[in-house]
Design a protein around this nucleic acid. Structure first.
Length: 789
DNA sequence: CTTAATACTTAGCACATTGATC
DNA sequence: GATCAATGTGCTAAGTATTAAG
């Protein structure tokens, strides 16, 4: 390994690489990507600092993008809590709703008029709602104190039922006066007042101790057993709601099924001859044919599994006796031409089809949760197909059978009408009324009968937003414990108790490298690992104190990294490896349950994944603070992207290099060269102009304008600037070709950090959050500009 | 304890749409 | 206005985590 230490004082340490650009096509070999750049790290961790500072990043100086774009349309003085009024809101561009231009202090929001509130997060035209469904549509601003809840499952003494967008929003309002106080403080000072209205949101954050919500009369199962342990608050219980109650009323229309199979009649060949297939056989053959141009075709496992399932449908006696002699091309080509046809359709035709589809699907898109219209996430039942497992999945290619209504369990409010089964003559498997869960429906995963496929609300829903917020609040809470936790595990690196030592080292790795917990996996899943499931061969100690990691993590994405660690950790890893084979567990005394049980002793609700959230968010907050220099919007966006990228690297969020990447780079280079040629020419002309000569002939022989030296100078400068910008863009592009920035933005970065930063630096939030993100993070829009993670 | 069942979050990629560029 | 890259969205696989059951 080369640890080149071109970075002066630091010993070079972190080096990340990974899959080759060929990822997609590679078959047997493990994917790996080159990493953008090495990261150096300081050995001794400084407790409180974010990962980014504990790990020093070799950043290439920030490029300041010269091009200035005019500040965009920022307008409204302050974002306000959004209460949507479908009718009026719809038309407005989101930008007019958000976009902060406000200065830090100005924070008095006007109150949202919560009068109509219909729907939460969505940008849609929802003229037709589930209107006809009789539901207890509560007026939005109805506060719904506990008592109003129809089924008081909880005694009145219990925390008031939390509430929804409406309440939530209304609430926000109420702490307006607090606006300049950081949320965390507001939370603290919030007295659990009796006023039901304000109880909701903050409730969740309340100390566990204060709200010993014991499951009371939950009718069922899980609840009974719930141990009201010493650290009470089971994370499941949403703040203001009853014992794990997630909703009080729930109305929706069930799910929609893909169309029945329509045979195309195109015959495939077997040993060169056309074969007749029944529609069912043809359907499965078509699933395979359609994948002819994917690299699943290079995987024997895929073909084997496909053949196994297809043969069951063909029958043992069928003409077709093997896959080798099958020629699916005719079907493949038919499919390609269908695709082409579709592409050729005029915009109007496409539009018409789309609208038609919308009309049919409209009613499935929405649910009414506690009186608020919310978007449903995946209301379309997954169509049949061949299982596309990632990595070397043992089940790839298996037939994912068609799901029928009789496979579906619906969960809905007791008082809601049962959705009509969309397929005439068929019926749902089961109807439940479980308000302790958020799913609207589920079916058994046809590939793995031990698992389920759930239908949930969309990310823009209050239910999801609420839990998202809780996730970040928990991560922020870790801030207050992290120092102690680090001290504690550091102390245990040398603990004589094997288990304790392993817990300490594992926690260290999770904290420092943002590794995933690493649950156990079955043999019928791809062989990937996380922290607790690391194998001896995945971590190679390289004296004096470097650990070389190389393993396949989630989604079979390769994690490669070389890290300098504290000596005791290094020694401990060496010791964990002794006497074991490469394939043995590195942490043989450990699994995620034990690890999490330990973590919970350190902080209520703490689990391994919280470290990832914490480290990602604190890194963003820290880098934004350190690197924002008060430039223009463009420059600030570069700062943000830089921070975002760092987080993505820490979390190992990768993407495959686009097929056209190298071609694009080549083109960029050509353009740069071209511009350089222009410069040369301009320089020639400049010197000639200075001598009073006319410009040289341009290459194409056309005469050029006779410019004066000043004009030429200016042109040269402009062109140079252009070249510089292109060089920077090129670099950025190359740099980010394997880095996926989106994943962290969606899942790990507390949106309040971004929103507050935007407010502080007058960056329109729309530059960073697209429509979906704005909807998903609606709950964070009114954060105080001074918010820090 | 260990394993199974359950529910929910996180993930990359394919495809669609939008936007920039010539 | 066509072309092609960038961006957005849908899809569904693959994780984490808790609780119940054995």
């Amino acid at each position: 390994m080369s640890y080149s230490s071109d970075d002066d004082d630091k010993p070079l340490i972190f080096k990340r690489n990974s899959r080759p650009d060929t990822v997609k096509s590679s078959s047997s070999s493990q994917p790996s990507r080159p990493s953008p750049k090495p990261i150096n790290e300081e050995v001794d961790s400084e407790d409180d600092k974010p990962l980014s500072s504990r790990i020093s990043i070799v950043s290439k100086g920030d490029t300041n993008h010269a091009a200035k774009k005019g500040p965009s349309t920022s307008v409204s003085p302050l974002p306000k809590p959004q209460v949507k009024d479908e009718d009026s809101d719809d038309e407005k561009p989101l930008s007019s709703k958000y976009t902060f231009k406000s200065k830090v202090g100005s924070s008095t929001n006007d109150k949202p008029l919560v009068s109509k509130v219909h729907q939460n997060g969505s940008a849609s035209k929802d003229k037709n709602q589930l209107k006809n469904i009789g539901v207890n549509k509560r007026p939005p601003d109805d506060e719904r104190p506990t008592s109003s809840v129809k089924k008081p499952k909880l005694s009145d003494s219990v925390t008031p039922v939390n509430h929804k967008p409406v309440a939530m929003k209304a609430e926000t309002k109420s702490d307006d006066d607090d606006d300049d106080v950081p949320i965390s403080q507001r939370i603290k000072k919030q007295a659990p007042s009796s006023s039901n209205k304000s109880s909701s949101v903050k409730q969740k954050v309340m100390k566990k101790s204060s709200s010993p919500l014991n499951k009371t009369n939950k009718k069922s199962k899980k609840m009974m057993k719930q141990k009201q342990s010493q650290y009470s608050k089971p994370s499941k219980i949403p703040p203001g709601s009853g014992e794990g109650q997630k909703w009080t009323s729930l109305v929706h229309n069930g799910v929609i099924f893909p169309p029945e199979y329509k045979p195309h009649g195109v015959k495939m060949l077997y040993k060169g001859k056309p074969v007749d297939l029944t529609p069912e056989q043809e359907e499965v053959a078509t699933m395979f044919a359609v994948m002819l141009d994917t690299d699943y075709m290079t995987k024997p496992q895929f073909k084997e599994n496909f053949w196994g399932d297809w043969q069951k449908i063909l029958g043992k006696k069928h003409t077709i006796q093997d896959l080798e002699n099958c020629d699916f091309k005719p079907i493949y080509e038919w499919h390609q031409s269908e695709k082409e046809k579709k592409k050729q359709m005029t915009t109007e035709e496409k539009k018409a089809i789309k609208e038609e589809k919308m009309k049919i699907e409209e009613k499935y898109m929405w649910a009414i949760v506690d009186g608020v219209k919310e978007k449903v996430g995946n209301f379309r039942v997954e169509p049949p197909g061949l299982f596309r497992g990632r990595g070397e999945h043992p089940k790839m290619g298996k037939l994912k059978k068609r799901i029928r209504p009789s496979d579906i369990t619906i969960n809905i409010g007791k008082d809601a009408p049962i959705p009509e089964c969309p397929i005439p003559g068929e019926r749902w498997k089961e109807i439940r009324h479980d308000n302790t869960v958020t799913w609207l429906a589920y079916w058994i995963d046809p590939i793995n009968s031990k698992e389920f496929k759930y239908v949930f609300l969309a990310a823009s829903s209050s239910l999801k937003g609420q839990s998202d917020k809780e996730k970040y609040e928990k991560a922020r809470k870790l801030k207050g414990y992290i120092e102690g936790i680090r001290k504690a595990y550091t102390k245990d690196f040398g603990n004589s108790d094997d288990t304790k030592r392993q817990v300490a080292v594992a926690t260290y790795l999770i904290d420092k490298l943002a590794l995933r917990a690493g649950n156990e996996k079955d043999d019928d899943e791809a062989d990937t690992v996380g922290c607790c499931t690391l194998k001896v061969e995945n971590v190679e100690p390289m004296p004096p104190n470097i650990l070389k990691f190389d393993f396949l993590g989630k989604d079979s994405i390769r994690y490669q990294n070389e890290v300098e660690v504290e000596l005791p950790v290094f020694k401990a890893i060496q010791q964990f490896r002794t006497g074991k084979q490469g394939n043995d567990d590195l942490f043989d005394k450990l699994d995620t349950s034990k690890l999490n049980a330990h973590l919970k002793e350190l902080m209520p609700g703490l689990t391994a994944k919280v470290f990832r959230t914490y480290n990602a968010s604190i890194t963003l907050d820290d880098m934004l603070t350190r690197e924002t220099k008060g430039g223009d919007v463009t420059q600030n966006l570069v700062v943000y992207q830089h921070a975002n990228k760092e987080v993505a690297i820490i979390c190992n969020h990768q993407r495959t290099v686009s097929k056209s990447h190298s071609a694009q780079m080549t083109r960029l280079n050509e353009k740069i060269d071209e511009l350089k040629g222009v410069i040369k020419e301009l320089e020639t002309d400049l010197s000639r102009a200075k001598k009073g000569k006319p410009p040289s002939k341009s290459s194409d022989g056309k005469p050029k304008r006779n410019l004066n030296p000043e004009a030429l100078q200016k042109k040269i400068a402009q062109t140079n600037a252009k070249i510089e910008k292109m060089e920077r863009d090129k670099e950025t592009k190359e740099d980010l070709k394997t880095v996926a920035l989106g994943t962290s933005k969606i899942n790990y970065l507390d949106p309040r950090i971004t929103v507050a930063w935007c407010k502080r630096h007058e960056v329109p939030i729309e530059k960073l959050f697209n429509k979906s993100l704005l909807a998903k993070f609606a709950w964070s829009m009114d954060v105080d500009p001074s918010f820090r993670f």
